[in-house]
Design a protein around this nucleic acid. Structure first.
Length: 285
DNA sequence: AGGGCACCTCGGGCGC
DNA sequence: TGCGCCCGAGGTGCCC
């Protein structure tokens, strides 16, 4: 479940372990991962001979910037990268191997096979899917209170699904959206048009603070997430509500409620995050 | 526009 | 108590 902090951590690690290396060949064991070009053989052939100059993040996507080529990679739920010696045994669920001229190789492993890779000419990647319609980077200067409000304040849908929609703001996933809403004391089902000015202010600060703290901790290591060097992130110990169903709210002590909002498992405190005009939606399951 | 589901595998939990 | 099955986990994209 890599969200912005995890993808940022992986990106930084990739810059350390893979930047500067030249690809000699690429092995694709699961064609479904390769979205563009459609043929895995074409994908592999295009990358051979190119050097990884740097690795950057856009939302939850990783951009491998090579000389004259850009590879866009999304980890979806369980994708991981790791650097190996070419002669090391290949672990199960390894779907793509980028072999380097120095005898090492970068391996992409993804148990659920949901991850994607796209290849573009430099600059072309921002004009078409999957990057074309991405929204604001919440840790950039452009993520101001006004930018947040102007995009969302007139919407009548629930705030949580809006925050998960990458067309408005990028990087938030199910974990950090629950955390940010808790910190801002906003009920996940409150519709955006009903947020008060002070709540927009709190939400803006909470999104930024939550993501910044998580990046500083190297992300969260829940289930299978491990960064490129195999070090687990530490932020899972600081999660306030996610995964804490029935545990006391760290703010007020009431049991954390778990419900479903917009089809997603949702954790919040019914006391700290009230829904005005509606009786407690007590649906702890 | 927004909700629901498909994509896929693993493992936790529950029922027998 | 042990085994086996079902379903939940979630980011994105597509369909309605």
């Amino acid at each position: 479940m890599p969200e912005l902090p995890e993808v940022e951590t992986v990106t930084r690690t990739l810059n350390i372990i893979a930047a500067g290396k030249t690809i000699s060949s690429v092995v694709v064991s699961l064609p479904r991962i390769i979205q563009k070009p459609r043929e895995p053989e074409a994908f592999a052939a295009a990358l051979a001979g190119h050097t990884i100059e740097k690795v950057e993040r856009r939302g939850k996507f990783i951009r491998f910037v090579l000389d004259g080529l850009v590879m866009v990679s999304h980890l979806r739920m369980e994708g991981r990268y790791g650097l190996f010696q070419a002669d090391e045994p290949v672990e199960k669920h390894t779907h793509v191997q980028f072999r380097f001229t120095d005898g090492t190789e970068l391996r992409y492993k993804d148990v659920r096979q949901f991850g994607t890779m796209h290849l573009f000419a430099p600059g072309e990647e921002f004009t078409q899917p999957p990057l074309a319609k991405l929204g604001l980077e919440p840790l950039d200067e452009g993520f101001t209170l006004e930018a947040l409000r102007s995009r969302l304040a007139k919407r009548t849908s629930k705030i949580k699904p809006l925050l998960l929609n990458q067309e408005y703001i990028v990087g938030l996933g199910n974990i950090y959206v629950d955390e940010a809403l808790h910190t801002a004391r906003i009920h996940p089902e409150l519709t955006a048009d009903r947020l008060k000015p002070e709540q927009w202010n709190l939400l803006h600060q909470s999104i930024r603070a939550t993501l910044e703290r998580a990046v500083a901790a190297g992300g969260s290591s829940i289930k299978s997430y491990v960064n490129g060097q195999g070090d687990p992130g530490k932020f899972q110990h600081e999660l306030l509500v996610y995964g804490r169903k029935n545990e006391p709210c760290p703010t007020c002590g009431s049991p954390i409620i778990k419900t479903v909002v917009g089809g997603r498992g949702t954790h919040f405190c019914g006391d700290c995050q009230p829904l005005p005009g509606v009786r407690h939606a007590v649906g702890s399951q």
